[in-house]
């Protein structure tokens, strides 16, 4: 169960951590707990899967990754599991999800590919498509980021 102290910690960790030698010490001071207590809590969250990781999130375009393709695939139900795992094995595929189809939109597998330009994206997509032997897919390039934030839980 997530108690009120956990919520307090999670709320703080979804903000920025300082770029200093002892960032968690600063947070534990703010939260009136010891650094050891905080680190222990964080490790527990990590082990239970609540906290995926402490990490850096980048501005893709500023980092030079200008092409962002969401590829939606129509895959036979019985092949879906193997195909999903196979697609996930590509280094260039950052996200791979099975999603519920919706009416005539009957795509069921979604992959995200980030590359420096569309040409390299297209090459990767063609490789994947020919490897699984399908033409039932559509590439949706992003034209504009309208919003990107991190979720603020327990606000």
């Amino acid at each position: 169960m997530i108690d009120s102290l956990d919520k307090k910690i999670i709320r703080r960790l979804q903000e920025d951590i300082s770029i200093t030698a002892t960032p968690y010490k600063e947070i534990s001071d703010e939260l009136n707990m010891t650094e050891d207590e905080l680190i222990h809590k964080m490790k527990t969250y990590n082990e239970t899967g609540i906290l995926k990781r402490i990490g850096a999130i980048l501005y893709h375009r500023k980092a030079g990754f200008n092409a962002n393709a969401m590829v939606v695939w129509k895959i036979d139900k019985e092949k879906l599991d193997d195909t999903g795992k196979y697609m996930a094995s590509f280094l260039e595929v950052s996200h791979c999800y099975e999603r519920q189809p919706c009416g005539s939109w009957d795509y069921n597998l979604y992959t995200m590919i980030h590359q420096r330009d569309r040409e390299s994206c297209n090459k990767i997509i063609e490789n994947i498509a020919s490897a699984i032997g399908t033409e039932n897919y559509k590439v949706l390039y992003s034209i504009k980021e309208l919003k990107k934030t991190s979720m603020k839980y327990f606000k």
């Binding site: 999670i10 995926k52 990781r53 850096a56 980048l58 501005y59 990107k148 979720m151």
Partner: peptide, 11 residues
């Protein structure tokens, strides 16, 4: 501005 945020990423 290359790094947007450094912090916790939750499930």
């Amino acid at each position: 501005g290359i790094i947007r945020r450094i912090g916790g990423i939750f499930n």
